[in-house]
């Protein structure tokens, strides 16, 4: 088990080019750049409220282009919660999450207590290869939550992170601090429709 510390660690996994970094950057910085830069590994920190106090939400954006089993195992064993991202324009990218999920399962044992969100990104794209119901079915099978997002149009991005935090039943976490709503949070009021928790 990860040691109890003041950090809450979220790890983002997914194949190359599905938009992991775009999702994280949209959430952390509120911006979207149409650039094309593969990630080695980046970690972002943000203060959130947790059990009437504050803690650091630490988001690790991993590489999708190559796999280092050792690094991946380390990220999984240190992580508290996981975001598994695929692109709705690539069936293959959903396939690639399977070994990652299996790895999480192998390292964490019982995944039912671990917050995991399956995310179909690029929901603004029209060249869809993965139907929403296919993503839902996969999430059902994995007993995890599911959402479709678009980092480009900022669809469901903040919701994704808030929902992930809500899935953790051991802590009571919120992106809001002191009940004050940030700009991002007010956007979160909209668009609840697409989110479903299995």
């Amino acid at each position: 088990m990860p040691e109890q510390s003041n950090d809450y660690r979220v790890v983002v996994f997914g194949a190359g080019g599905v938009g992991k970094s775009s999702l994280v950057l949209r959430f952390v910085k509120g911006t979207f750049r149409d650039t094309y830069i593969p990630t080695v590994e980046d970690t972002y920190r943000q203060v959130i409220s947790c059990d009437k106090s504050v803690c650091t939400l630490q988001i690790t954006d991993t590489t999708g282009s190559h796999q280092f089993p050792a690094m991946q195992r380390l990220s999984i064993s240190k992580g508290h919660a996981f975001i598994l991202v695929y692109s709705i324009t690539s069936k293959q990218s959903l396939e690639e999450l399977k070994p990652i999920y299996q790895q999480v399962l192998a390292i964490k044992g019982n995944v039912e207590a671990i917050p995991i969100m399956l995310v179909g990104n690029k929901s603004d794209e029209t060249q869809r290869e993965v139907e929403t119901k296919d993503g839902e079915a996969q999430a059902n099978q994995w007993k995890c939550a599911f959402m479709e997002t678009s980092a480009k149009t900022n669809h469901n991005v903040t919701e994704l992170f808030q929902e992930l935090l809500n899935l953790d039943k051991k802590r009571n976490m919120s992106l809001n601090i002191d009940g004050k709503r940030s700009g991002k949070q007010s956007r979160a009021e909209r668009l609840k429709g697409k989110c479903s928790v299995m």
Binding site: S65, E95, E96, P99
Partner: peptide, 11 residues
């Protein structure tokens, strides 16, 4: 092809 060597293939 966009993303040649970045994208993955069927395992």
């Amino acid at each position: 092809i966009e993303g040649i060597f970045r994208r993955s293939a069927n395992v």
